[in-house]
């Protein structure tokens, strides 16, 4: 009787790992420290400029879009996949949503109401989801490597976005949208940041507390084993890319709100930035491990570094080099640490 109880309770105990611990994971604490050190160093050099409300507001708002992209990318990379198309899908969703809003308000949506804005959001999310679904089906059903599929949709979505509006930016974003979500704040926090924070929190919960999240890890660490324990690997992969596409669509809409224009260029390297953020955050490029919180740190490390370097007056050209050094150093340290742990 007692024996039965212990055998029954031990797996239950295992499942009840504290939520915070599951959210943070093993690697994230360390990368969070790097971020803290960066903030501390820049703060010590120029406390007056760094800890200003406007500086922080700007830093957060500029990073919000990339954060949403990176949350989706975290899921994809944990399945040991990759998505190069997120930036292009973002542009496509942003352009089609802006054009849809203009179309339903007779050519110019600047003074449009909430109904039109909701429609624009729907268009952005759906068009992102369609690209994500296409990626997912080609990867899971047709068995084409993710790098190739998303390399293809990287070009195709960007091209399609340019075709939609003959290659020019789309203006006419509703003022109301920009005022509330683009530039509005809530207790000093930009609303766009709140949206990104909510998406991130939901993503973190989805990854660490739900069956969907556990399947994501399972598929990434051993696809064959996942299939044999009865997980529909194809279905799950399709859903993960669908999620990444949907979030890219949402990010496109957030970009519209923030910039007041649907911009067709400047997102060519979003994919690499998102991947860099995810990997910096301790998610293994080989799949199976990773966390959303780590990705949050990974997004902010380059952002803080760039902002900090500008403020202490380093020429802007040096920023990519500094970011590159931090990226390689972080990944190298992480891999060395992991190898040491595995050898033990």
């Amino acid at each position: 009787m007692t024996n039965e109880k212990t055998t029954l309770s031990s797996p239950a105990d295992e499942q009840r790992t504290p939520l915070l611990k599951r959210l943070t994971g093993a690697n994230t604490l360390w990368i969070g420290l790097v971020l803290l050190v960066l903030v501390a160093v820049f703060g010590a050099i120029r406390p007056d400029a760094i800890f200003q409300v406007t500086t922080l507001q700007f830093l957060l708002a500029e990073t919000a879009v990339l954060l949403v992209l990176s949350v989706g990318m975290t899921f994809v990379i944990i399945t040991s996949g990759i998505d190069l198309s997120v930036g292009s899908v973002l542009v496509f969703a942003s352009v089609s949503s802006a054009m849809a809003m203009n179309a339903v308000s007779g050519g110019d949506a600047t003074n449009a109401g909430w109904g039109v804005i909701a429609f624009g959001l729907l268009v952005a999310v759906v068009s992102g989801a369609v690209w994500g679904l296409l990626n997912g089906l080609l990867i899971s059903r047709a068995k084409i490597p993710p790098l190739i599929v998303t390399l293809g949709s990287f070009g195709a979505a960007q091209g399609a976005a340019l075709l939609l509006n003959n290659g020019s930016n789309v203006s006419g974003i509703p003022d109301r949208l920009n005022r509330t979500f683009g530039s509005g704040t809530w207790f000093g926090i930009p609303n766009i940041v709140i949206v990104a924070a909510i998406v991130t929190a939901l993503g973190a919960l989805l990854l660490s507390t739900t069956r969907f999240g556990r399947y994501t890890y399972a598929v990434g660490s051993n696809e064959e084993a996942a299939r044999r324990v009865g997980i529909s690997v194809r279905g799950h992969l399709t859903k993960v890319y669908l999620l990444a596409g949907t979030l890219a669509g949402l990010a496109g809409f957030m970009g519209n709100a923030f910039f007041r224009v649907a911009v067709v260029t400047g997102h060519e390297t979003d994919n690499l930035n998102a991947i860099a953020a995810v990997v910096l955050g301790g998610t293994s490029i080989f799949g199976g491990t990773g966390s959303v919180l780590g990705t949050v740190f990974g997004v902010f490390i380059p952002a803080v570094l760039e902002k900090g370097l500008v403020i202490i007056g380093v020429k802007e050209f040096w920023q990519p080099i500094a970011v590159a050094i931090v990226l390689v150093a972080a990944v190298w340290l992480d891999q060395t640490r992991r190898r040491a742990r595995n050898q033990r």
């Binding site: 690499l272 490029i285 050209f317 990519p320 970011v323 390689v328 990944v331």
Partner: peptide, 23 residues
Amino acid sequence: YGRVVAFIATLASLAAARGLAEI
């Protein structure tokens, strides 16, 4: 020798080399 994953190492040198070219 550094055993950094190729994808990440060359992603970093992409940024660094373009930055250096701009400098």
